[in-house]
Structure formats: structure tokens, C-alpha cells
Design a protein around this nucleic acid. Sequence first.
DNA 1: GCAGTTAATGAATCGCATG
DNA 2: CCATGCGATTCATTAACTG
Lengths: 313, 313
Amino acid sequence: MTRVSLTWPGRARRRPAPASLSSYSEEAPVSLVRGDGAAVLGALASLGAQATLVYVDPPFFTGRVHRTNARSRRESGEREAFSDQWSDLGEYLEHVEALLVAAREVLAPEGSLVLHTDPRVGHYLRVLGDEVFGDGAFVSEIVWRYRRWPAKTRNFQRVHDLLLRFVRDPSATPRFHQRHEPLAASTAKTWGEGRQRALIVDGRRTRSTTTDEPSPGAPLGDVWEISIVAPSGHERTGFPTQKPLALLERLVDTLTDPGDLVVDPTMGSGTSLLAAWRLGRRAVGVDLGDVAHELTARRLERAGVPFTRVEST
Amino acid sequence: MTRVSLTWPGRARRRPAPASLSSYSEEAPVSLVRGDGAAVLGALASLGAQATLVYVDPPFFTGRVHRTNARSRRESGEREAFSDQWSDLGEYLEHVEALLVAAREVLAPEGSLVLHTDPRVGHYLRVLGDEVFGDGAFVSEIVWRYRRWPAKTRNFQRVHDLLLRFVRDPSATPRFHQRHEPLAASTAKTWGEGRQRALIVDGRRTRSTTTDEPSPGAPLGDVWEISIVAPSGHERTGFPTQKPLALLERLVDTLTDPGDLVVDPTMGSGTSLLAAWRLGRRAVGVDLGDVAHELTARRLERAGVPFTRVEST
DNA sequence: GCAGTTAATGAATCGCATG
DNA sequence: CCATGCGATTCATTAACTG
């Protein structure tokens, strides 16, 4: 296959200065690391950590500074949560590329990277991911479809995000738990709740029948309807780009086993850590920001999740 | 903005040999042209045609030869409809790029290109489209979510296609008719069917109320649930990658006015032409294949659509 | 006519046989 | 050993048939 890749003037493949971690323990159920995402992933990899899921939720190249919202403002005023300003698209892509390269190093062969992005910049990240992970590693584009207050625009309302899944080793059997969703209304009407089976006569398929065995439903697809975190919802932490727990729980549930390691170098308010802990997985979250660490710590304490702080230097 | 672009070894920007059209009339409601898509788009542009919608449904880089299916097999046996085999991804991208370049030439300033693709190769086409149409021209990624039989795979079922929309001129007001979809169940439950209105006190939003005015529903989003053409459906033509009429009607309805011109350089069995005609738009379809022309002609005749054949040389 | 039941069949994958 | 091809699987959808 001919290599197709992205170029831009002055494209650099920078490696972050490697970090070193004090007091990281493989066994800790939940660890919070303050530091640069890519550098800390590299440090985890060199300590021999093997993640089954790395969830990366970088900025979406919006050109904005994102600030805390109402829930957090009440407690400590409006503050900058993270900046999403870049000199150009190339600089942004170099930032994400460093995360992808480091994420790949920490992944177990049967593990997956899930890169959360949006349809304005996600296509560039797919191409970047193909470069980093190689042919055949891109296995799913998950569409997260949500509902929100409509914007006044002469265009279709943007009501979805993209989650790009790459596997570490396309030749390995990936971790995957088959889950099901309800049958389509038309199917239930025609076929009832029984599993369908084709009737083969003389080696030729003639027609289908229903069986007595109940159908588990349709195998889970790649378009997921999940509610956003409501502005006044109990789940809301105040972090501006918070993702729903239900979304992260579905990823963790389908892509990891209990006891596996989940790593998030873009911790934010720690949704992935909470999802992992609730499902009995170990988790490491990495973030540079004060707001992220404060909100995550408060959230985990309230949820009764024991966690360890790890310093990186 | 730094230019980010795709490269591959030996990337060529080939222009198809320009075609010339005999007997094309601007006023014909529906025209069928036999010829190369890009070359004929160029010929239309040099005749001064101005399309409001160009719908492009190229092969999806599957590596397969696509053959007619049951409906057509009964009438004339199984035949090759089109080949989707390429020496490499670069060759494929050069083919699609030629279509995009020519499509842009035939578009009116307020017109849109809609590129139908899938999540395996669509990301590359987005980047290619940005190169051809320029910054700010990519305005929507529409997700067509469908339901189909399950495949046995350790992965999420692939149940969506992508439709990438680019506008010809980002500074022009695009053709766009706002349509609505039913309110979400949870919205209807909380707010009923009345239009919501935010209550602003001292310039600050306090809460929302419902009004007596009935809500038209939620403005149409970019995730569309539309059934595939059923294997035994009346709509089925026998063309292997046939798209549902409902999908094309939604595009034509929202993105064009009655009387506007819709052009499809990847005609197949003519779904876009039929959609355009049913909604009172003019249409030109272009295809090289015998099967495409036979099936389209038969389909339009059965639907009572008057059409003109145009030769290209 | 209408509702309820039965029929027909697509095409994504994996697994296994074949060359 | 690798490429190719065919069989098995099974929801989703509309058409056709039946009472």
C-alpha cells in the first residue's frame, strides 16, 4: 500500500522530554499524575505498564480558551481550564501526534486507543493516527450522537462527536465484549423476539425462520445515542468539556476486562477514571492543569474512590 | 492558516481530457450523459451550467468488483456494475480529486458539493476536499445511520456512512431550507409541544418557559436515520450500491430550490435524478457504465420521468 | 380494506477449505 | 505459506399472501 501522509511546512516530529515518575504503583486502583500527557505515557511505558485502553480527549482546535462553568464558578470563581489556541493547524497536529505516539507505546497488544474528536478536525486526526498506528489499525469510527439546544445557523445542526478507535496490533485478537441493543421496531414487529435463522434446503438458502431461542438484540453498532451531561445535572463537575459517564462506561465495558489498566493522558475532570473504577478496572489519569486536578480529586472523594497522587519530574 | 495537505509518492494532479457535449440543453428536466464524470462536469461548466447541488457517490475503496443483485439478475443475469479496484490508495484519491475539482467548476456560488463516503476512507476525502475547496468550505459531516444484518466481528457493527458537504463559496449565503425533526422524547415529556423561550432578566438568562405557539420540532441535525433500500423493496433497481430515495430527497429538499440544477457524475441507477425530478429540480446524471444507463433509463421510464440522452465525445 | 403472517434477500464479516 | 473463495451467520426491510 502506498503511504499517504499529511504534510505541512516545517512539520516536526518532536518527542517530549521523557518524564520520570516517583512512587507509581502498578497495583494502585486509581492514580492521578500531574504532568505532560505524552511525557508521562512514555514514562509509564518504560516502567512496563500495559494499558488495554488509552482514552485521549484532546482539545478540538476551537481557537478558544475554555473556562470553568457554573458548578465550579460557585465554588471557586471562573478560571481557565485549558487553552485551545494554537499558532496553526500544524502545531495542533504535532501536539496530538505526540500523544498518539506515546499512547501506542503504553498499549498492550490486545489494547485500543480511543481518540475523542469532532467532525471539524477529526478527519485530520484519523490520517495522523494511520501514520502512527499503521495500516489496518483503524477499526472503528464511533459516532456519539447527542441532543442539545439548537444553534441559529443556515446549516444542519452539529449534533455528533467522533471517537476513532485504533488497535495496537491488528494481528492480535482484540479485547472486545459483544454487547447488544434493542431490535429495530420493524424487526420486532415482523419476527418477534426470537432469534432468526436461515433455512437451508439442498445447500441453498430458501427463507428465514424464527427460533424459540430469544434474540439478545442487535449487536451494538457504531452510532451511540447518549445524553450530554445536563447543565444542572448531578454529574456536572464544572469542567467545560466534560464527557458523560455513560459514554466512558460503554467504552471501558466493551474494550477492557476487569482488572485491566485504563490510561487517560487528557484527564480533565476524571470521567474516564471514575468509569474505570466503577467497573473494576485500574486507571491512571494525567493532566497539567490545576483545575483538572482539583475537580477530579473533589469528584473522586465524593464518589468514595481511593486514589493516589503521583509526581512526575 | 498553514496548509496541511496529503502527499503520496508520485502524486499526480491529472485533468481529464475535456469532453464536449452534443445536444445538451439547459432547460431539459432530466439529462443522462454517457461519459467520464469529471470530464463531463468540466464540459458542463464550460457551457455555463451552474449547479446548486453536486452529489458525488464514488466507490468506497473496497477493493471489490460490484455486481448487479437479484432484481436485475432476474431480468438480465448477473453483470459487473462497476469496479472498485485500484493499484493503491493514491490512485483512488487521484480519481476522486478529479471529480472534486470538476464539481467545483460547475457549482454556483450558493451551491454545495455532497460527497458520499464511508468511515474507512472518508477521512482522506475530507482532507482532499479541503485542498480543493479551501479553508472554511467544509460545513457539514452528515452521518447516515442505517440498520442492517449483523456481521460476525469482534468490533462494533459498522452502521453508518458519511456525507461530507462543502460549499463553493464560504462568503456567499448558502442555499438552505431549515427543516425540523420530532422533538426528543425527553423534551416533549418535560416541555410538551410548545415552543420554548428563554426568560432573560437584566440581560441574564434565568429560566425557560413554554409558549402557546406549537414547536415545529428540533432543527434538523447532522445524524440521519434512514432505512436502507430493502432487498425485496419496490425501490430496488438491482444496482449494487443503491442509495435510498429518502436520503437523496432530503439533500435535494434542504440544499436546493425548485428549478435549480442538481448534477451527479456518479449516476449509478439514478436515485439523485429521480429525487430531483420528484421535487421539481432539473438534473444531469453522468456515468460510464452500461448497467447504470440501462437501470436508470428503465427506472425513469417506469416512474414516468421524461429524460434526454446526451452524448459526450 | 386492513391486520397479521410469511417470504425473499442484502452483504459484512469470520472461518475454513482449497490451490 | 499466503492468497482466494465459498459457506455460515442473522437482523432489517418491504412485498406478497391470507383471513
